[in-house]
Design a protein around this nucleic acid. Structure first.
Length: 491
RNA sequence: GCAGUCAUAGUAUAGCCUGGUUAGUAUUCGGGGUUUCCAACCCUGCGACGCGGGUUCGAAUCCCGCUGACUGCACCA
């Protein structure tokens, strides 16, 4: 297959729109807002299978617990988590040209005065007046500093009591931790996972799935005893898995074991989960040779993180952050313990500990985009676009086609389709030229197609055609189930 | 949020400057035919001027506002 490797964002977007992967929300209305997208049937198929793989490779593999928490959470949760105070940027607006600056950055650049972003708003105003700071563009005066909080506030009940849409899914995991540890008979280290939607009022959402205001996260919080970070029983499973880690300007390749021994990754515990993560992404079809763990500097890290690595993948729009790995220490549990006055300590053997948390926070939408971009191929030789998804992730496992619809072939095809449709994602198609139907399936990512022809009626065999190689093989109808089962099963 | 560019069927586009036909083309899609294993061909059908207002006898076309998309800046705990 001769291919053109340079698949761009535009091509993915077009495919997504044409084949029902995703499209703008509320698009029939003129007042639809940016940052909201919907998944169509193909997108949901891919997403569900992606999550199935995530469960297999992370949740089940490591014996984690999965929960499903509320999207709306009380004010106290975000007072404790720090989001009400810190998940906000101080901004100032020029009264003349309307240009908005981030106050702390603008002041440190123009006047060389450092004010932490969490400072009182008056401090920013004072600094602007004292240093006679004017708008860099039009020399206009600034208005007073305001806080822009990225959380969506909602009103509960007739009185509209204050609550928020969660800006990250993990807070439910933290507040549920004491009950889960007790009732599920937890032992450290304990992973708790959750898939769901999070909401952030982004200033400028862009590029469809890449920056949304409402988005899916798959988060894992691993609770651990901070004294035992170098005791990982299963470490040998991933010790030779290759990580690309960037601490300076270029990424270095090393095994998980080497990463710890050289001190690039602080301990076996963190390296173990980085290894699991890479093994997971490799199975999604994303090219992990184009990935890196980028160690974040002090200024880039989230307010709760002690050590942070972003897992990033190279795409046509640059390096894309798919996963944030944060060592959150006991920040969250101690904050919730203090605010709620509940006890969050647990027993680890004979020892009573307040667990530390290592977080693997995955952006699902961005991951799905990257899978599409890395899987999309233009086959020059045959003038076709192929979505070469892993068979177990494909929204359609198999096309079921009649070579022609007359002479009883339609009925025979319908029967075979009926037989397999409950077990596999099968797509029935009778209309048009056979080649056109194959191309359509190629674009939708279906790895296999079964074609029923005149010979089928005589000897109960069908043709099975492979998407990537376009090879065809004659098989018995009775073999279809076992062949599909093997071809589409998870690794 | 700022600046620039832009917005016409599922997709890609013409028409707009210079207001006036049934809004054209390609492809896709549905139905039918023909052929039968890789986007062929023939017939036929469905399908669009982002939203709101203004100017005008008349607006896809001119003007204003909004919304969105793209690019750059800023932002992205």
């Amino acid at each position: 297959m001769t291919t053109d490797s340079a698949i761009q964002y535009d091509s993915v977007m077009k495919l997504a729109l044409e084949r029902g992967f995703y499209f703008p929300s509320c698009e029939v209305y003129g007042d639809a807002q940016a940052g909201f997208w919907e998944y169509g049937p193909s997108g949901v198929g891919l997403k569900n299978k992606f999550l199935q793989l995530w469960r297999r490779e992370l949740v089940r593999r490591d014996g984690m617990l999965e929960i499903d928490g509320s999207q709306i959470m009380s004010k106290s949760v975000f007072e404790a988590s720090g989001h009400l105070a810190s998940f906000a940027d101080p901004i100032v607006k020029c009264t003349k040209c309307g240009l908005t600056y981030r106050a702390d950055k603008m002041i440190s650049e123009t006047a060389d005065v450092e004010i932490p972003e969490s400072a009182e708003l008056e401090e920013f105003d004072d600094a602007i007046i004292k240093n006679h700071i004017k708008c860099q563009k039009c020399n206009g005066e600034f208005g007073s500093t305001k806080k822009f909080n990225m959380m969506f506030r909602v009103g509960i009940g007739p009185e509209g009591e204050e609550a928020y849409l969660r800006p990250e899914t993990c807070q439910s995991i933290f507040v549920d931790f004491p009950r889960l540890f007790k009732t599920m008979r937890g032992k450290l280290p304990l992973g708790i996972a959750q898939v769901g939607k999070s909401f952030r009022n982004e200033i400028s959402p862009r590029q469809s799935l890449l920056r949304l205001r409402e988005f899916y996260q798959a988060e894992i919080e691993v609770f651990c005893n901070p004294q035992h970070l170098d005791k990982m029983n299963n470490f040998d499973e991933i010790q030779n898995t290759i990580l690309h880690i960037q601490t300076g300007s270029d990424p270095d390749s090393m095994t998980c074991k080497e990463a710890v021994e050289s001190g690039v990754v602080p301990n076996y515990f963190v390296a173990y989960y980085m290894g699991l993560l890479v093994e997971f992404y490799e199975k999604t079809g994303i090219d992990v040779e184009k990935s890196r763990f980028r160690k974040l500097g002090e200024k880039e890290k989230a307010f709760y993180a002690k050590v942070a690595f972003d897992f990033e993948v190279k795409t046509s729009v640059g390096w894309l952050e798919l996963v944030a790995c944060n060592y959150r220490s006991s920040y969250d549990l101690s904050s919730h313990a203090k605010k709620s006055k509940e006890k969050f300590e647990v027993m680890d053997g004979e020892e009573k500990v307040l667990p530390h948390v290592f977080e693997i926070s995955m952006g699902i939408d961005r991951s799905l985009y990257t899978i599409l971009e890395h899987s999309m191929i233009y086959d020059k030789e045959h003038e076709r676009t192929v979505l070469s998804l892993k068979p177990y992730l494909s929204p359609i496992h198999v096309g079921v086609l009649s070579l022609v619809k007359k002479d009883g072939l339609r009925e025979e095809t319908d029967q075979i389709y009926q037989k397999i449709r409950r077990k596999y994602d099968a797509f029935l198609d009778h209309s048009g030229a056979i080649g056109r139907r194959y191309r359509r399936l190629d674009e939708a990512g279906a790895p296999l197609a079964i074609t029923i022809d005149h010979q089928t009626l005589e000897d109960q065999t069908v043709t099975i055609r492979k998407r990537d190689s376009m090879e065809q093989e004659r098989i018995k109808i009775s073999e279809i189930d076992s062949i599909l089962s093997e071809a589409t099963s998870f690794p």
